[in-house]
Write a protein that binds this DNA or RNA. Structure first.
Ligand SMILES: [Mg+2]
Ligand SMILES: [Mg+2]
Ligand SMILES: [Mg+2]
Length: 789
DNA sequence: ATCCTCCCCTAC
DNA sequence: TAAGGTAGGGGAGGAT
């Protein structure tokens, strides 16, 4: 479904139809008050730099469609008061796309591209209603449905087509008309003989269309598709493929299976090999067992004390408890995932409350038995949290996951009752795969007026299909068993009584829930159950759609597991890599994720040591890198920045003194109580008032020292680490703040000489990165930039 | 070999 | 201000 949110939003806004529209939290102008010191370019350029320098040799290269558009406005500089809004666009209309607007784009930038862009707010209740109506409508045709998201689903239509004796096109047409009538939104339908082809066809069908990709046309169709069209091929794999000279599916067909498997692993290699030929034997899975339940919050995470963090973890655990219980699940494995401000990244990212540039870490623990209790989860994650030894004030995101869910867990014995039934069915279904079935992938798009009342069920004459998909056999067999056997199957999962059939089925807006979780930790009220706001209506199991079968009002009904809503239109992420979202997840964090050696644990418990190290902000991290590198085939030499810091003795606890004595300079804010010491005097907010010592880079302050450091850095290392580059940027911008432009100028020039003449082009790019950021800050601060000869 | 853990990547 | 969520697949590398 593209622009689902927009389609829903303009259902009742005929004035907006045909206009560029975006769903976003920013209302209107696309400008916000400028926050001094915010440097929106840093994160963007960091990402771009990363992207280009990981792109291996090939340069010119393929860029994924829709990924590029000229932007880079360094503007916004002149205006003291207004900065472009960094609210993300969750969904935008096709008219907006025409102007270059993309899902995931910042609203401020979108406004520049498309000044007439209209912002409309989220409306989760309406999404629920439309999604529900759409599923209800389709369930009137068949139950051979796999729900992919609130706006997208698969239908195994083989049985239905056989039964109705109509063509796929006719079916698609009928379905689309029906959905449009009932929801006021348009749906697109793609059809093919397997899931892959149906999906590819859907892409072609959009917007507001349908396409049947016939088997005999597949070869010609697929040959010229970019590899990114294939499911499972995103930006990273695309780059890897491009590096091998593979850009299109046709190119990919030329690569041998063994080569693909060698490069991407046995499973992924095989999938690539098959997909690029249009082959796919995955069955449509009517019931998928959920494998994990989780809750994450990666914005507005700012803690100053361990207690706050623990409190938040507790509340988040309660949220997970709630989701587990709503789903009727329990799990035995708990994972804590955190985002931690990357060393060298700004304390506050340009985006308000955003997580900025981070490292991701995750730790997992096995429970004695499965649980759905928030307290148990909380105690587990708090232990994990302490084992991670983080600086609480650098925490930027937290997530808790529960896995190995009851009923899913056992591979062999027990648990499988539900499973084996399903697999039996699926086996039969997939056995029929070879047949002529069509799988439809429904997509909703546009919206007109009428809102379908979700109450009245269509007295459809369409007969329900056989419970078992596909098999061309048995016309009669199925005829008798239809809904009944399927219903029984579903009953084994969860059948709320038919009375609640109507709404409140899909999950509530996560944002609201999170808001409360956030509120509650603020109040440092440790145990109180999370204020389940709006406990208003009774809610049947989350994500479950209960449907009454048309001509059988007294049947128990069927249950479709619907995917949860996330906060954004599912399409957002398709266009997202360009924006900051993906930057976070992308790869660069090798090495920083290693488990902390026991020794570090000791250090952390020593407040004195901790203080010193955190004063510079990189000591602790550096040691981690170092140690990791020592164990694994090191690719890069140690960074002089590191070495200067504290890494002298690789294995021993470093003498607490060494380099760290004076320069507690630039990262005042980091000089905070240690993480693990439960109590420690707090001295932070006052830091702004203190006179600021001159900026330093890894402890070096004098020009000569800086130069020496830089020279050592560039000459002894083949590939700079991101965090070191960020350190340099930080240092340079500190110089600007310190008004020491003369020094800045000298250093920039020195760096240019060093880095631009390096044989490694990475260094040249690193310089560009640094310079770009320096210029942006200069522009913002002084309205002009540095001239570099 | 097979598992387990810690990721990364991708879809929506 | 902004509200950057949720889930699954699978690879790398170590443990068994
Ligand atoms: Mg979609
Ligand atoms: Mg937004
Ligand atoms: Mg793809």
């Amino acid at each position: 479904m593209d622009c689902f949110f927009v389609s829903v939003a303009i259902r009742n806004r005929p004035d907006l139809k045909g206009k560029p529209v975006a769903v976003t939290s920013n209302r209107g102008a696309g400008k916000v008050l400028h926050r001094p010191g915010a440097n929106p370019q840093l994160e963007r350029q960091y990402y771009q730099w990363k992207q280009s320098h990981t792109k291996s040799a090939d340069e010119d290269l393929y860029r994924t469609p829709s990924q590029e558009s000229p932007e880079s406005n360094t503007s916004g500089a002149g205006q003291e008061t207004a900065a472009p809004s960094m609210a993300e666009i969750a969904s935008c209309s096709y008219e907006a796309r025409q102007a270059g607007v993309r899902n995931g784009m910042f609203f401020g930038k979108a406004k520049q591209l498309c000044p007439s862009l209209q912002a409309v707010p989220y409306d989760f209740e309406a999404y629920k209603e439309v999604a529900l109506t759409m599923y209800e409508t389709l369930a009137g045709y068949t139950h051979d449905i796999e729900a992919l998201s609130c706006d997208e689903l698969l239908i195994d239509s083989s049985a239905l087509l056989a039964e109705l004796c109509i063509s796929p096109e006719e079916l698609a047409k009928a379905i689309r008309a029906d959905i449009k009538e009932k929801t006021g939104c348009c749906a697109s339908v793609g059809m093919g003989s397997n899931i892959l082809l149906a999906r590819l066809a859907t892409r072609k069908a959009k917007p507001d269309g349908q396409h049947f990709l016939r088997s005999e046309d597949v070869d010609d169709f697929i040959r010229d598709l970019p590899v990114t069209s294939l499911p499972g091929v995103g930006p990273v794999m695309s780059r890897k493929l491009v590096a091998m000279g593979v850009r299109s599916c046709g190119d990919l067909q030329q690569v041998s299976l063994s080569q693909l498997q060698k490069k991407f692993g046995p499973r992924t290699g095989q999938t690539l090999f098959r997909f690029c030929r249009g082959l796919d034997d995955r069955p449509v899975r009517y019931e998928k067992e959920r494998k994990s339940v989780s809750a994450d919050m990666n914005y507005n995470i700012r803690f100053t004390t361990v207690n706050e963090a623990e409190c938040f973890l507790t509340n988040l655990s309660m949220e997970v408890q709630k989701r587990l219980q709503e789903a009727g699940l329990r799990g035995r494995r708990v994972t804590l995932k955190v985002m931690v401000r990357k060393v060298g990244a700004p304390q506050e990212p340009a985006k308000y409350g955003g997580h900025g540039i981070c490292d991701n870490l995750a730790r997992t623990v096995m429970l004695a038995q499965s649980t759905d209790h928030g307290e148990v989860i909380a105690s587990a994650v708090i232990k994990l949290f302490h084992a991670m030894n983080l600086q609480v004030q650098d925490l930027r995101g937290v997530g808790i996951q529960v896995q190995l869910l009851d009923g899913n867990a056992h591979q062999d014995s027990m648990g499988p009752r539900k499973r084996s039934i399903k697999e039996m069915l699926l086996d039969q279904g997939s056995g029929a795969k070879s047949g002529n079935q069509a799988i439809a992938d429904i997509t909703q798009q546009e919206k007109t007026s009428t809102t379908a009342s979700s109450s009245s069920f269509p007295p459809l004459h369409l007969t329900l299909p056989e419970p078992v998909p596909g098999t061309s056999r048995s016309h009669q067999t199925c005829r008798q068993t239809p809904k009944h056997s399927r219903t029984r199957l579903n009953c084994s999962i969860e059948v709320p009584s038919p009375s609640q059939v109507d709404r409140s089925v899909l999950e509530a807006l996560p944002a609201e829930l999170k808001e409360q979780v956030l509120q509650s930790w603020t109040k440092t009220r440790p145990v109180s159950p999370p204020p389940t706001s709006a406990p208003a209506l009774y809610t049947p199991p989350v994500g479950t759609l209960v449907l009454q079968i048309p001509n059988h009002p007294d049947s128990p009904g069927i249950v479709l597991e619907l995917p949860n809503f996330s906060q954004v239109d599912p399409d957002v992420f398709a266009a997202l890599p360009k924006e900051l979202q993906e930057e976070l997840r992308s790869a660069y964090n090798r090495g920083s994720n290693a488990q902390l050696p026991a020794k570090i644990l000791l250090e952390q418990k020593n407040p004195l040591l901790q203080l010193k190290e955190s004063g510079v902000g990189i000591g602790r991290m550096k040691r981690r890198y170092k140690r990791k590198n020592a164990n694994s085939p090191a690719k890069k030499g140690p960074s002089p920045v590191k070495r200067n810091q504290a890494t002298k003795s690789p294995a021993k606890i470093p003498p607490p003194s060494i380099k760290t004595q004076e320069p507690l300079s630039m990262m005042k804010a980091e000089i905070c109580p240690s993480t693990s010491t439960a109590k420690s005097d707090i001295s932070e907010p006052s830091s702004k008032i203190l006179p600021r010592p001159p900026p330093t880079l890894a402890g070096a302050r004098d020009l000569t020292d800086i130069k020496t450091l830089l020279r050592e850095w560039v000459t002894t290392i083949t590939e700079p680490m991101e965090e070191d580059i960020l350190q340099v940027v930080k240092y340079c911008t500190d110089l600007i703040e310190d008004k020491d432009l003369e020094k800045l100028d000298l250093i920039i020039k020195y760096m240019k000489r060093l880095m631009k003449q390096s044989v490694e082009s990475v260094w040249s790019m690193a310089f560009d990165f640094v310079l770009d950021n320096v210029q942006v800050v200069l522009q913002q601060t002084y309205g002009s930039t540095l001239k570099i000869s």
